[in-house]
Computed example of a mutant assay.
Amino acid sequence: MKKYIAALSTTALISVTPHALASSTDLTVTGTITPVACTPSLSNGGIVDNGKISAKDLNPTRDTLVGKHPLQLTATCDAPLLFALNPIDNQAGTSSSLTWFGLGLTDAGEKLGWVRIDVTNTIADGVAAHAIDSEDDGKTWSRTWVSSPGYLLSVGSATDTSTPIATQVLTMDFEVQTNIARAESLTLTDEVALNGSVTFEMKYL
């Protein structure tokens, strides 16, 4: 009986005060279509081959650096444009380091290691510049020497690394470092393939 009375009381309140309960919110859709486009590319087809690595050469208790390879990233635009590169780790969740890109898993589900991409030189339209990155989707920027998962990568001038500059042709020299997790954490009774993969996606600012 008490539940029935409570239900009636609620209905009565709704019927006499509809305007007090009414509210709204707006959705706004924005964006810009630009006639200018950029195309990124990597030297050597973006392939880093560390060759055959003997399990006995891996450090049992520490990560082992097994290769340093140069690559050059080039982004060519139709005209000067503000843009960034979004590095996507296609092996997310497999890195044995919290900071860097993954190398895939062993058949036993163990994290093989990690890949670090250092930025050793940056040229914007033929002029020396600096690599900059942003961890908050482009709200703030600072100088960087690496490309990291979750950080937008762009270019700032030699005198101002807090703001991206419009660029038509950007080149960045990379050094790709491959590191294998400590051997004692891996099952290495059979051959294991390293499977690191990173996509650099264009993002227009």
Rank of each mutant, 00 (worst) to 15 (best):
K68N: 15
K68V: 15
H69D: 14
P70E: 09
Q72D: 13
T74C: 06
A75P: 06
C77D: 01
C77V: 04
P80R: 06
L82H: 15
L82M: 15
A84F: 02
A84R: 02
L85Y: 02
L85H: 04
N86P: 03
P87Y: 00
Q91D: 09
A92D: 15
G93M: 06
G93Q: 06
T94P: 01
T94A: 02
T94N: 02
S97N: 13
W100Q: 06
D107C: 10
A108W: 11
E110P: 05
E110Y: 08
K111E: 09
K111G: 04
R116W: 07
D118V: 10
D118M: 14
V119S: 01
N121A: 14
G126M: 05
G126E: 05
V127F: 06
A129L: 03
A129P: 01
D133F: 05
S134R: 03
E135F: 15
G138R: 00
T140V: 10
S147K: 03
Y151M: 14
A158F: 10
T159P: 01
D160H: 06
T163I: 14
P164N: 09
P164H: 08
Q168C: 06
L170G: 01
D173Q: 12
D173A: 12
D173K: 08
F174T: 02
V176K: 00
Q177C: 09
Q177H: 12
T178F: 04
N179A: 09
A183G: 06
A183I: 07
E184C: 11
E184L: 11
S185E: 12
L186D: 00
T189S: 12
